[in-house]
Design a protein around this nucleic acid. Sequence first.
DNA 1: ATGAAAGCGCTAACAA
DNA 2: TTGTTAGCGCTTTCAT
Lengths: 339, 339
Amino acid sequence: MVDRITSSQVAKRAGVSQSAVSRFYTPGASVSAKTAEKVKIAASELGYRPNILARAMVSGKSRIIGLVVAYLENYFYPEALEKLSNAFQERGYHVLIFMASQTAGNVSSVVEEILDYQVDGIVMASVALSSEVGSRCQAAGVPVVLFNRSQDMDDISSITSNNFEGGRKAARLLIDLGHQKIGYIAGWEGASTQRDREAGFNKEISDSGLSVFSRKVGNFRAERTKAATFEMFDKSKVERPDAVFVANDHMAFIVMDILRYEIGLSIPKDVSVIGYDDVPPASWRSYDLTTVRQRANLMVRETVNTILNRIENPNSSDPVKLQIDSPLVIRSSTCQKSI
Amino acid sequence: MVDRITSSQVAKRAGVSQSAVSRFYTPGASVSAKTAEKVKIAASELGYRPNILARAMVSGKSRIIGLVVAYLENYFYPEALEKLSNAFQERGYHVLIFMASQTAGNVSSVVEEILDYQVDGIVMASVALSSEVGSRCQAAGVPVVLFNRSQDMDDISSITSNNFEGGRKAARLLIDLGHQKIGYIAGWEGASTQRDREAGFNKEISDSGLSVFSRKVGNFRAERTKAATFEMFDKSKVERPDAVFVANDHMAFIVMDILRYEIGLSIPKDVSVIGYDDVPPASWRSYDLTTVRQRANLMVRETVNTILNRIENPNSSDPVKLQIDSPLVIRSSTCQKSI
DNA sequence: ATGAAAGCGCTAACAA
DNA sequence: TTGTTAGCGCTTTCAT
């Protein structure tokens, strides 16, 4: 392998000092036009590019953002990841990926690994953070923002959609459509998204003088969701729900498939179904799922702004707790009008 | 922010030299039991962890793998990304993500950026590489492997499924099922996957004395695929295909939806559909798509092995060109028997 | 505006 | 086995 070109080699060729070369690559530095020209020529002749790692070591800024993700099976996350990565790239940063399963111990050891890379900031997507790990990052001076997950007590910034309002809207729609027997299929109960969606949903239901007709837990996982659906729509029951709100789109697809192909109900004639996220398959014709949209673009933009702002402004204090408005997207999995 | 603990601080506290601390963290180094113990204690009391970037600078090994991805909309890639990242993590590496659109200029500038980070290796997923960019990496001594894309001439390693055989198998199945009027919907013609799948498909078709009934280009993109489907199954035509092989699953879902809901054909009664990839939605009940499986686990394992082997063995020469066997997965989007 | 010099935190000879 | 020493490639004072 050919050795990398260094700034000293460029300096020698350009007939200037090594520091002059460094200054040429430092945004707000003082270099005369002629020096700049000499450096530019020498650098391009040699094919020189500054070594980011060396720069990181002395400056303390790596321009690397650590991104922790638990799973990519929910297609909201690949989309978010792509947008996050692009947004950071545009601002001169890059994303170092860390996969983490939900276990707390795992998350904490992953955070240690991240810190080893001297990242400038950390984005945690769909992962909860123990407050001890949070303060570990605080101590290291590395800003953290939670993406699509929030924690009430801790002073950690978080960007989510407004899950409470989203849950409300789902309930409101179903009620307005004339449904009286409304079921709910919950996600993993450790997730703030699940809890907030359900809380908003319950609030609107009870504000309307109704109560939730049936509740099962799908845990955000396929097998559990299948079982939950079968239990909720058990044929032996005298009365079954005429509508169901599912805590995310991925579970909703499973619910729809079971309802149609296993239980033999028609959507939306027999049952209205509504999901949460608006991932791409929700708009595929076979599902055409009414859902609450998480505005990925906005969430990503705010996440990037928040963390970059913290990086450039290390002394800023209050955590940002942003809840992005989440609009209802009405498609054909819910009935058209009063049933 | 609290400053990071350095090896010198640990050394002082442990009453040993700084190099002793360094040795303690170097796998095959010579440290006595008592020194090791002293360092271990001091380090844990201080919460010391080695700075990977500093280590990278002097050793020339960053333990970072650059991963270039063009798009995550095809759900084969999030899956691959997750598995790749996990596999590298297990071997002590981490993945730095670079999103790149297909344009050659973009890929080349992205590669420069990657090289700036002193990565130990580069995995390019679904991206083609100009030979000049390839030799740029060669010159930098950074091994590259293409994931799910290959290039005949260049001496760049690549891991793909056996797309030619996969295409053949798809054709064989359709023919065995008794289909005579078989259509093909192509992906983006710049992709080696598309070309190889089609070549295998064509070979088997003509070996059987048939010819392709109709061919349209979907370009791996939704709008184009819709149009291609409408053209292929235009109602004004006297004869329409009774089967169609679609170059990937994502296009196949669109084809199925159009066929069923826009054109009013029944699958598989009127038309058999077969895709390629076996992404998760292919097994969702609404599609239940017959397809050729790309064995992501195997492809990932080989990719990781190949690149890590190159990193540890810089002098090894011949490029690896691996084609992983791709089995047919028969579901209900193809008819059961001779029609 | 420019060069000299110090040093970021670590590894890798080299002696001892 | 251990400590001393010399850098890795860069940014950043500090004089000039």
